[in-house]
Design a protein around this nucleic acid. Structure first.
Lengths: 242, 242
DNA sequence: ATAATAGTGTCTCTTAGACAGTATTTG
DNA sequence: CAAATACTGTCTAAGAGACACTATTAT
């Protein structure tokens, strides 16, 4: 124990006084901004103008600055690229294969963010693309003309993990409302769940589950001009754990 | 879009040719090696011999080398400190508060590993400490004399997240067997679950759930010398998703 | 009035918990 | 034989799916 321990501390001691002993990688954050519209899961991608991965589509990202936390870096990057200030943001996974960026060692901490699609500026909306695919592994992105878009770096892999995390988390955490406006109907919420999970759900038990969760607050207001019986509008009870 | 995009790529362009423009943090991996013995959840900690956090207890960790992936770095660190080669290993979360290490900016990618407690060398066993506490937030570590151990850096926070992840994952993924020898009884497995989850479980439904999962293979062998009717020994069916 | 969806009540099916009873080993 | 735990069968309770039925709006 003592040998092992001394050795470990010597490494750290040397490191602190001789930064050249270990190569310091670049550290970035990449953020998958996810929204839902027209029953499609969508993510914000930017087309790269420079090599490497020129003309491929990439998640918004940027370097982590020396005075900011990882969460702050992710929030800053997203605000810089979209103007958005309020969104659900959660760290996803850190990707660090030595050759994931051909230039130099770049370790990226991936985040995902959720937002009501209507809050995105219209000039950004054109950049939002739907995706299809199963959970877990790399994901294929298609545009509105159903053409597959080439992704930069390992961003397809990142997006696959985003889908998996979202689907897993939706089953036990109230995050669906992050993809909706402040007031919404139970049908709106079910559409979100069905889109994210990629399967249709039973209306009756979905209603029961949501109402029994204690997370929904009826507003007394109703939809208008819907061509059928209007549904009650609900709010999510804020302050509860996410 | 084009402005934003060009700006993003200019940053990356400059970065690739002028590494001094952005401060490069140190990147480390820290690994929580978790095991269960005597119905206690245990984790391997090493006592630091140098400042900072001198005399406090720390997770085994080390710098990520330029030619290895994050997973490889975590596996290497754990093998260096324990001699272990085969263990379940999964990335947990990345911690990067600017001041989490007082010397310089250190971003650490935290991992957790699971191992049968009996596989640990006896000289390491003395370093293993039980813990108590709830999920999520920072966790308090106590030793076998029930004294609280001071933890280095933000390692209490890391361990809190380890507990939370383990408890969450145990409910939908077959990871309990990673904490057991190759052959085990259903009672062994239930003890693991109860220890990790911190609550007792119904024996009957636990047996039904496990046997219905299709993950368990009866070996036809039984315990011996147990002073009561011996239980059948099972193996986990390998190759299934984790 | 018709179309369409909201919302309610009830039955069934599945799964977990409770509990009684039998089986098999050591001492 | 007694003690202790493994294992089985059955009842009950809770929750999800299925489905019939009523309610309310726009056209």
């Amino acid at each position: 124990m003592n040998d092992i321990d001394r050795q470990a501390n010597e490494e750290q001691f040397l490191e602190s006084y001789d930064p050249s002993k270990f190569e310091h990688p670049s550290v970035t954050v990449d953020v998958a901004l996810v929204s839902v519209s027209e029953n499609k899961l969508r993510v914000l991608l930017l087309k790269r103008q420079e090599h490497p991965s020129k003309d491929r589509w990439a998640l918004p990202g940027g370097f982590v600055r020396s005075n900011e936390s990882l969460d702050q870096a992710a929030a800053r990057v997203l605000e810089e690229k979209t103007g958005l200030r309020n969104f659900f943001l959660e760290q996803l996974y850190t990707f660090g294969e030595p050759k994931r960026d051909p230039r130099t060692r770049v370790i990226t901490v991936a985040y995902y963010a959720l937002v009501d699609h209507d809050k995105l500026k219209s000039d950004l909306a054109t950049l939002v693309v739907p995706w299809e695919g199963e959970t877990g592994g790399p994901v294929t992105i298609i545009d509105d003309r159903k053409e597959e878009l080439p992704l930069a770096f390992d961003h397809g892999e990142i997006l696959g993990m985003v889908v998996k995390r979202l689907r897993g988390k939706l089953n036990y955490a109230p995050i669906g409302f992050q993809l909706l406006p402040a007031r919404f109907t139970l049908r709106n919420l079910q559409d979100i769940h069905e889109t994210v999970l990629g399967r249709s759900m039973n209306k009756d038990s979905f209603r029961r589950r949501m109402l029994a969760s204690g997370q929904l607050l009826p507003t007394g207001e109703r939809e208008i001009q819907v061509g059928h019986r209007p549904a009650e509008l609900y709010r999510f009870i804020t302050g509860s754990a996410v």
